[in-house]
Amino acid sequence: MSNVQKGLAEFIGTFWLVFGGCGSAVLAAAFPDVGIGLLGVSLAFGLTVVTMAYAIGHISGCHLNPAVTVGLWAGGRFAARDIPLYVAAQVLGAIVAAFLLYYVASGAGSFDPATNQLASNGFGDASPGKYDVWSGLIIEILLTAFFLWIIMGSTDGRAPAGFAPLAIGLGLTLIHLISIPVTNTSVNPARSTGPALVVGGIALQQLWLFWVAPLIGGALGGWLYRTIGADSFPKPNIEGN
């Protein structure tokens, strides 16, 4: 696949993750009488990854997340030279999705951007459960590390073929079930950047944590799997890695 094809696939996939995941929180979670709640939002994020993993996994690998891209590099599965392309495509996809979601949500007269932060991430006063910065930092690092462990393990050469998208999507669902009350769940700098740029304010001020923590966690998870399972998958022949 060409770099253009890979970049467009990552753009489309990350757009779907943000529009589908954040859209479920903004448009459906608080809907009167039939709101889907925390479980529904968690499942929506997982489903975006499952569907796109089957749709574009053979094109770009379906990273949809700068922390996954960096983690796969740390795990020896991705070339360093391709990181800027993937991260740029992911962030652009997330931004476009957030702006379109904001436009759709604004079509309802009851939508108030001052109170509905477009499913943005935060800590302290911006945390759904008012968790402090250290709680947010720890949980984002830990859960992103486990997310990379799941990704690398389920795509290992010894793992059952064809089930990786399900394991990864269910892993992301579980991550959301754990951490929505703490940070509204990021584990993905692109997913955090889109809504933060649209709503501004405290979401944009706190965006740094949702780059720093997932990138640390992703690199840690990828490196740990590479170290512990060094002989469990064929080593890729990637120049510059």
Rank of each mutant, 00 (worst) to 15 (best):
S2I: 03
S2Q: 03
S2M: 01
K6C: 09
L8G: 10
L8P: 09
A9G: 13
A9C: 07
F11R: 06
G13R: 14
G13V: 11
F15R: 05
W16P: 00
W16A: 08
G20T: 10
C22R: 10
S24I: 02
A25T: 05
V26H: 03
A30F: 13
F31Q: 11
D33A: 14
D33Q: 13
D33Y: 08
G35K: 04
I36A: 06
G37I: 06
L39R: 12
S42A: 14
L43D: 03
L43M: 13
F45A: 04
G46A: 09
G46F: 06
G46C: 09
L47F: 15
T48I: 06
A55P: 01
I56N: 06
G57M: 12
I59S: 10
I59N: 09
G61V: 11
G61Q: 11
N65P: 03
T69W: 15
V70P: 00
G71K: 06
G71P: 00
L72A: 15
L72V: 12
G75C: 06
R77W: 04
A79V: 01
R81A: 10
I83M: 08
L85Y: 01
A89Y: 12
V91G: 00
V91M: 08
V96M: 08
V96P: 04
A97V: 07
F99I: 02
Y102A: 15
V104G: 00
V104A: 07
A105M: 12
G107C: 13
S110T: 09
S110Y: 10
F111Y: 14
D112N: 15
P113L: 11
A114G: 01
L118T: 12
L118Y: 11
A119L: 11
A119V: 06
A119I: 06
A126G: 05
A126E: 09
S127R: 02
P128Q: 14
Y131Q: 10
V133W: 12
L137D: 02
L137W: 13
I139W: 03
E140I: 10
E140S: 06
L142N: 00
L142Q: 02
L143Q: 03
T144R: 06
F147I: 07
F147E: 00
L148C: 11
M152Y: 04
D156Y: 03
R158S: 12
A161L: 13
G162D: 10
A164N: 00
A164P: 00
L166Q: 03
L166W: 13
A167F: 08
A167K: 01
L170Y: 04
G171W: 06
G171Q: 04
L172D: 02
T173S: 10
I178K: 02
S179H: 05
S179K: 09
N184H: 15
T185K: 03
N188C: 08
A190E: 01
A190T: 01
R191E: 00
S192R: 09
S192F: 07
S192E: 03
S192I: 05
G194D: 05
P195Q: 11
V198F: 13
V199N: 01
V199D: 00
G201E: 07
Q205A: 15
W208E: 08
F210I: 02
W211S: 08
V212G: 11
A213Q: 12
I216F: 08
G217N: 14
G218Y: 02
G218A: 07
L220S: 07
G221W: 07
L224V: 15
L224E: 02
L224W: 11
D231Y: 07
F233N: 05
P236N: 07
I238R: 14
